[in-house]
């Protein structure tokens, strides 16, 4: 459908809905439920150089309209992703996919990007410099403009595919980080990752999450994400992928009005596995409701 089309860093998407990293695995759990080729795209589980178990359990907690996770980048490592996961992914998804990568040093980001660069199906790199879960790693890069710039530069050097830097909201001024990434040649910015949060079990007096803290996501964070997308859109001229709490077609429209060229849906995939399909199906009707001809016309209307 022409009116849902949008473009992300030179690649056309059938619609702006992308499933977010860490909530969609490598696609095949969802491919058992519906044809995932209806998606604009999806971002696969954050991949690191070495295999990672992540944090000890319990690593999921609940709060009003959201959840807090401390999964901590569990993944089989880039070699296994290439050998085992991508061939399976290829069977159920035939569009360009987003490769979400992470690292614990700038060299690791570069290494993972270089290893994945030869994979044809990867359309974009989404570089997670924001995961709040990993001690000494993710958090640092995304909160310091110099380190964010360094990672951008390293990844940029080893690939010609579009590089989208995924930012953490756990900073004082997100536009400063976005501008540092843009200056080093980032093709796009995605935001937000999860917001650092916690819960305490009243019965034990101890944190619910074994890790103590985790990252908040789900509808609770939508207004915060929207505000940050809007601020970032004013500060940079590269395209933005907006995410954080999206749960409906109307949220998609609102996020695009704030300046996003495309959106991602994360936590809601976990509680409502058909959410992306429903949003895509409902979009035309909602465009009609608000008198919008083509979805691309509204990008940044609120700026």
């Amino acid at each position: 459908m022409e009116r849902l089309k949008t473009t992300l860093c030179g690649i056309e998407l059938d619609n702006p809905v992308i499933a977010a990293s860490g909530t969609f695995g490598y696609g095949y759990e969802f491919a058992e439920l519906y044809d995932i080729n209806i998606l604009g795209s999806f971002s696969f589980k954050g991949t690191t150089k070495d295999p990672r178990y992540g944090n000890p359990t319990p690593r999921i907690a609940e709060c009003a309209s959201g959840m807090i996770n401390s999964v901590g980048l569990q993944n089989p490592g880039v070699d296994k992703v290439i050998e085992e996961e991508l061939p399976k992914l290829k069977k159920c998804f035939h569009k360009p996919v987003m490769a979400n990568i992470s690292g614990f040093s700038a060299e690791e980001y570069e290494y993972v990007a270089e290893r994945l660069n030869a994979e044809d199906q990867i359309g974009w790199f989404e570089v997670n410099i924001s995961c709040p879960n990993v001690h000494g790693g993710g958090m640092g890069f995304g909160t310091d403009p110099h380190m964010a710039a360094e990672v951008t530069k390293r990844v940029r050097k080893v690939t010609n595919k579009p590089v989208i830097m995924k930012l953490t909201p756990n900073v004082t001024d997100i536009t400063e980080i976005a501008k540092a990434c843009e200056a080093e040649g980032a093709d796009g910015i995605s935001l937000i990752n999860t917001i650092m949060a916690m819960r305490i079990d009243l019965r034990t007096g101890r944190p619910v999450l074994r890790n103590g803290t985790g990252g908040l996501s789900g509808p609770a964070v939508f207004p915060v994400a929207l505000r940050m997308v809007w601020q970032t859109a004013k500060a940079v001229s590269i395209p933005i992928v907006g995410l954080g709490g999206i749960s409906s077609a109307e949220d998609v429209i609102e996020m695009m009005m704030a300046g996003a060229s495309a959106v991602e849906v994360g936590a809601c995939n976990l509680t409502e596995p058909f959410i992306c399909k429903r949003i895509i199906e409902e979009l035309p009707e909602k465009l009609d409701k608000y008198g919008i001809k083509n979805i691309r016309d509204i990008i940044g209307s609120a700026l």
Binding site: G22, T23, T57, P58, A61, L270, P273
Partner: peptide
Amino acid sequence: EERMGCGFGACVGCSMETKNGVKRVCK
């Protein structure tokens, strides 16, 4: 039992280490 994000294998919130590697309690 483990605390679950999804219950169908997508979030790896419920991981458990076994002698045969890391498994998801839900799936």
